[in-house]
Amino acid sequence: MTRWLPHLFVLFLASVPLWMTDNYILHILITTGIFIIAAMSLNLLLGYTGQLSLGHVAFFGIGAYASALLSLGFEAHIAPGLLVKVLPKPVWFAMLGGIASAAVCGYAIGKLAFRVRGAYFVIVSISFAEVVRLVALNWVELTQGPMALNNIPALKLGAAGLELSFLKKPMVYTLVLAVAVLSYVLIRRLVQSRAGRAMIALRENESLATSVGIDVTAYLVLATVVASAIAGAAGALYAHYVRIVDPDIFLFIYTVTMVIMVVTGGKGTLAGPIVGGVLFGLLPESLRAMAMPPEVQWIAYGVLMVLVVYFLPRGIVPAINERWGAGEATASPLRNLVVAAKARS
């Protein structure tokens, strides 16, 4: 029975556009879904490798900007005297470009940032997102700076005559759901593979993992590349749905939203970001519906964050698992270590 539950859940979600006519609810579901995809990718770093990256929104934003720019076309000086001109590309190609750009940045940053750990890593990751934001803000020739990239085209698939347009909300919703399911499957395969066990091993005890021959940095970089590619995909979806991208997309508060989704749901569990994402995706709307002054909404949000951490320090999903003893079986750290060491030899 429990085995079929996830499939039934996905089927139910897939049926939503068939009976849901309220555009506003679809809008909330779409934006929540996009953030859940981003939160799932963050969970790979935060939950499975134990690295607290607070710059994750950078990959989301890079995916959004790269995809938007490729679909709109641009002309910019990459270096003095070196003018790069790109003609508008089809949206599906632009989105793949966005994902690739995010992955490449993930590789570079992974190589750089994993020279440090702990509190330092946290600040380095924030700095990275901040630098990207300031570049987006000031490189007006390329990004239009604070004027934002406007009129980004929506995704269209298929040839003339048989065209599939993702402009209307039910279609966008279906697309977001498909990407979310794909990302979920990808992440599950990764964390259940040998590479995934190595990641968990180094989360549990990094020095021990190193001593049995696990190339810690290589696995961390791998996790970062996959996580940033998925975050980039979420960003690309966002850009072609909202159809505007501005430098505020790199704001720290979006990273905070992703982190709180992961932690509330339960980091290091596959279902965690989804549960947390649904909760914190719908929360701002419910606060807004209570007709409170905006400052009070924010205060409530902040206080709720503190309370969640106090009362559910490990998250909702592990708490449920403990109570009913069901759900994902997590292998013991020692076993992870042994498997990972075997993978090396």
Partner: peptide
């Protein structure tokens, strides 16, 4: 990360 989230919540509030 737990303490940090608490501090972020306090910051927003």
């Amino acid at each position: 990360d737990t303490t940090m989230l608490v501090m972020i919540g306090a910051w927003i509030a």
